[in-house]
Write a protein that binds this DNA or RNA. Structure first.
Lengths: 199, 199
DNA sequence: CCTTTTTTCCTAACAGCGTTAGCAAAGTTA
DNA sequence: TAACTTTGCTAACGCTGTTAGGAAAAAAGG
């Protein structure tokens, strides 16, 4: 009775093919020009087949958002493990966050919604919690190592995240013709200010 | 020979009607469901007429982006005039920036591109410079009042702007179920940290 | 092995989108 | 009144996401 299993396996393969094709198209032509028909073409199936695997186009994109948060969390964990003190960990994590954003622009744009979209992102992206949990616990460590152990770690996380995302999205908008070093300085500046506010 | 003048005036009226209708549709149904056909319907003209006044749909949206930066600058100028010291001015401007964003969500979303879009925003939005000039000069004042008058005001502006935009866009994403006071605290926290980094 | 049922998958369409070509009507000028 | 310019329309092109309905293939049951 391996028939059912094989079918599940085959279905899974088509699903994976859809995601692969979609990702290829996104990296090749940008998120905005992705279309269901192009995906169908690429996987050599007809259009409705895609709807057997995903409820709609957004569901496909959501998959990449989730994957993005997994990669981000993995990168940040790696960064964290390279440093001793919580403060240094936060500094290094900021650098890696930045690098993740610019080495994976498509992911980042998807994760942050092509314009702050779906107000219920958090429900659909459980992976977000693993990411935020990691950062919050590190911030908590840094707070406990300072003089005001009563500081609200969640509030501080909110600030940390906002600074990071702000820096990156302002930069990605391309409004600012700033150099590599300039960016690094702004990042250092902002994060240093943040970290000293924890002590 | 007032004929030419009348024609220009009439043309201007249609143009204004297009913008009015577009804005009504945006506030009623959201930016994403705006369409040229709906605008044409609303102004009781056929579709191609719109293309006599705007090169394309983006050009219509761009108009709102520019208007948004004008309003923002006006609000910030008003905030600035209410405070004496540069530090207080920056604090008050931050509050007004926040309020602008949440009282004018549609504008804010347009201004920041529905997903960090067109890399050449700055060229198309000269109004952006009036806004940034205002903030930079205030930051410069704050720097000169502090102990390190050599600090790069442009760099600090970049940081300030990033913090503000980060806080707002993280909030607008709706990822965080934070209260009114919570938001206020995060904002205060972030801006206080920033301002103390200027002294 | 043949029939019945289920699954798979396609064609074709619907309703919408931004954009433009081409033409008729109206307005303006001489 | 005739020639010219401007205005504004219909209709189309080529896209988009999504779905209804049916044909072909596969699996299950007798």
């Amino acid at each position: 009775m391996g028939i059912a299993e094989r079918r599940i396996r085959q279905k899974e393969e088509v699903r994976a093919a859809i995601l692969d094709a979609a990702w290829d198209l996104i990296t090749a032509e940008g998120v905005h020009s992705l279309s269901i028909r192009k995906i169908a073409d690429a996987i050599e199936y007809s259009v409705p087949v895609i709807y057997d695997h995903f409820e709609n186009k957004d569901a496909i994109l959501l998959e990449f958002t989730r994957k993005g948060f997994v990669i981000l969390r993995t990168d940040l964990e790696a960064a964290k493990s390279q440093c001793e003190t919580a403060a240094d960990q936060l500094r290094e994590m900021a650098v890696k966050y930045w690098e993740f954003a610019f080495n994976n622009r498509e992911y980042y744009q998807l994760m942050y919604g092509l314009g702050m979209p779906s107000c219920d992102t958090v429900k659909k992206v459980p992976e977000l919690q693993a990411y935020s949990g990691l950062v919050i616990s590190t911030i908590q460590d840094a707070i406990l190592a300072g003089k005001n152990p009563g500081t609200n770690a969640f509030l501080k996380f909110h600030t940390y995240w906002s600074i990071m995302h702000g820096l990156i999205s302002i930069n990605m908008m391309g409004n600012v013709n700033s150099s590599e070093e300039m960016n690094r300085m702004v990042l250092d500046d902002a994060i240093s200010g943040f970290i000293s506010s924890l002590a």
